[in-house]
């Protein structure tokens, strides 16, 4: 099933004296399952773009096709809005602030219950989701407000995972997490992707984009500069400078080495491990 944006525009406060265009003429198609990164400076429209997908914002112009759902600019209330929101789950930035229940388990099962799952199934799904994000069982009956910031974030993400969405949209899920925690969470998303869930990830961490994403969208001032493979995008100097994005250190290293006369296969280098493997291969050739 595709995720399709058909020339989507969105303007905040469209009828007010001070309208502000957030995104303009966004047009793309993604085939599920995907692990797509969205990059761009702050204020480039990333968050606005993803909110069109589960109809938190309705396009001012154009339409969004999400699986079998269509989000368009009509003012009418969508009948299938709940199913849409179950299909495409959105985790907001600093999601830990949305916790409110008395216990961790109750909070995570809140989502499935809203989608008319019965109590037992909801709790079962919540437990499964909590296990996935690495929250141990003795935390289940704690109040979410007793947890540390990182733990809260995981619980909040579990709250969305428990809904078992087809498309999981994440707005900077690792911002403010410690590096190890961030790695674990990202590995979890990658695991979900390999099991058939589509992931749409807003991030400022280019290393993450290079390592995990199958494709990447570059946004700049509300316009989509293009959809690329992460293995190509970081070698395009002009594009990066237009979008005001810095390439990951690894890419700079590869480029420096190439200048010095090494020939590396760019398409194989996604992270430190694959880089080391590539170097080893080269050494083998030299020997």
């Amino acid at each position: 099933m595709p995720l399709m944006f058909d020339h989507v525009y969105y303007t905040y406060d469209a009828s007010s004296p001070l309208p502000s265009k957030a995104i303009e003429d966004i047009h793309f198609t993604l085939n599920e399952p995907f692990f797509c990164g969205i990059i761009g400076q702050t204020g480039s429209g990333k968050s606005t773009l993803v909110q069109q997908i589960n109809a938190l914002l309705r396009p001012t112009q154009g339409k969004v096709i999400v699986g079998e759902f269509v989000v368009d600019s009509s003012k009418k209330k969508m009948k299938e809005i709940k199913s849409l929101r179950k299909y495409a789950g959105l985790v907001f930035q600093f999601a830990e602030y949305q916790l409110f229940e008395e216990t961790v388990l109750k909070d995570v099962s809140f989502g499935p219950k809203n989608f008319k799952e019965n109590e037992e199934v909801a709790v079962e799904k919540a437990k499964k989701a909590l296990k996935k994000v690495g929250i141990p069982e003795e935390y289940f009956s704690k109040s979410p407000f007793e947890l540390s910031g990182g733990e809260k974030r995981r619980v909040a993400i579990a709250g969305l995972l428990a809904m078992e969405p087809q498309i999981l949209i994440l707005d900077e899920p690792t911002a403010g997490l410690d590096p190890k925690g961030a790695q674990e969470i990202l590995a979890l998303f990658y695991d979900l992707y390999q099991n058939g869930t589509s992931i749409l990830l807003i991030t400022h961490d280019m290393n993450v984009v290079l390592k995990y994403c199958t494709s990447v969208m570059v946004l700049h001032q509300g316009k989509l500069l293009g959809m690329y493979s992460p293995l190509d995008v970081f070698y395009q100097k002009e594009l990066l400078s237009e979008a005001e994005i810095d390439a990951p250190d690894l890419i700079c290293l590869v480029e420096q080495m190439e200048k010095k006369g090494f020939s590396l296969n760019r398409q194989n280098i996604r992270d430190i491990e694959s880089f080391v493997a590539e170097i080893k291969k080269m050494k083998g050739e030299v020997k």
Partner: peptide
Amino acid sequence: DRFMKAQASRGVD
């Protein structure tokens, strides 16, 4: 507004 959206994403109507 943000919390409303976050909870709406979790199926709150």
